[in-house]
Design a protein around this nucleic acid. Structure first.
Length: 292
DNA sequence: TCTGTATGTCAAA
DNA sequence: TTGACCTACAGAC
């Protein structure tokens, strides 16, 4: 599920299994042949996630930038030492599938399945990238320019909170729209957006500038908490155990339209906003301050 | 075999 | 605001 938590896991996974390693890079699909050639035979120096974007720096100062978009995914596989190097666990999640982890013998990477944009291979394992909306090789300067346009990442460096609060409270656009803007806050997608608004009892149409300082700060803190949980668990879980009807209830409102709210029993609503589906509970998130 | 859908983003109208 | 695009998969025919 490529919201910010997925990319942080991927950054960690790539560093775990490939950090410092000599890699061969190729584009079985062919669409990234020129980019892969710039990485082929290089060592991976470091990785970083900023919101939904992944940056991997190689020992020739080339920076691989990947954005998974809606359905991009990485698959990993390798020998026991490769799998043991991974600290994230939770295999076979969308966006970070681990393939072949049951194999006891490793004899190199398998034939590429489907449209593999980029394949990285080390001595002990491999990683396949398919379906990204962005995959390019940049200079460090170019990568920095892209990051400068992104808002603060709740999982990123400290100091982001003040910037987040400033950007929210200086806009008259609905808070539900602002949470999806990657130059306001980087890493929130449609699932976290809906769940954050529910957990903070906020009317999705409330203009950003009408949030109190405390409400904006609480949103930031909760975003960091939920994203960190997503990184740890490998999936988005936003419900508190005491609110779950069933153990499987992992969301309060996302994709729960026409079902009863887990807190109050009211019917969860669904409406398109700026081309994306917005889910909310009209009772727990009343329109108490904004006109729709 | 075809259609619809998805956790995203961009450019054109 | 709409369409296009990156890809895989489920479900309908």
């Amino acid at each position: 599920m490529p919201e910010g938590h997925t990319i942080h896991r991927l950054a960690r996974q790539l560093a775990d299994v490939f950090g410092g390693q000599l890699l061969s890079a190729s584009s079985p699909q062919g669409r990234f042949a020129a980019g892969a050639a710039q990485l082929d035979g290089r060592r991976l120096s470091s990785t970083q996630a900023h919101g939904k974007q992944l940056f991997a720096t190689f020992d020739n100062a080339a920076v691989l930038r990947v954005h998974l978009g809606l359905y991009g995914a990485w698959d990993f596989g390798g020998d026991a030492s490769f799998r043991g190097a991974s600290s994230i666990g939770a295999p076979r999640r969308v966006g970070e599938r681990e393939v072949g982890s049951e194999e006891s013998d490793y004899h190199g990477p398998p034939e590429p399945v489907g449209a593999v944009r980029l394949r990285l291979v080390s001595e002990h394992g491999w990683a396949d990238l398919r379906g990204p909306s962005a995959c390019e090789v940049l200079s460090e300067t170019e990568a920095a320019a892209i990051q400068a346009k992104l808002g603060p990442d709740p999982l990123g460096a400290s100091g982001g909170e003040a910037e987040f609060v400033r950007r929210i409270r200086s806009s008259s656009r609905p808070i539900a729209v602002l949470l999806m803007e990657q130059n306001v806050v980087a890493g929130i997608g449609n699932v976290y957006r809906a769940e954050l608004l529910f957990r903070n009892k906020l009317d999705p149409w409330l203009p950003g500038k009408e949030l109190t300082d405390g409400e904006a700060r609480a949103l930031w803190v909760d975003a960091g908490r939920l994203l960190a949980r997503g990184v740890a668990e490998g999936r988005i879980v936003t419900t508190e155990p005491s609110d779950r009807d069933l153990p499987a209830d992992s969301h309060y409102v996302y994709k729960r339209h026409s079902l009863p709210c887990l807190r109050c029993g009211s019917t969860v609503a669904l409406r398109e906003l700026a081309g994306r589906k917005l889910y909310w509970c009209p009772n727990c998130q009343p329109e108490n301050r904004a006109a729709q």
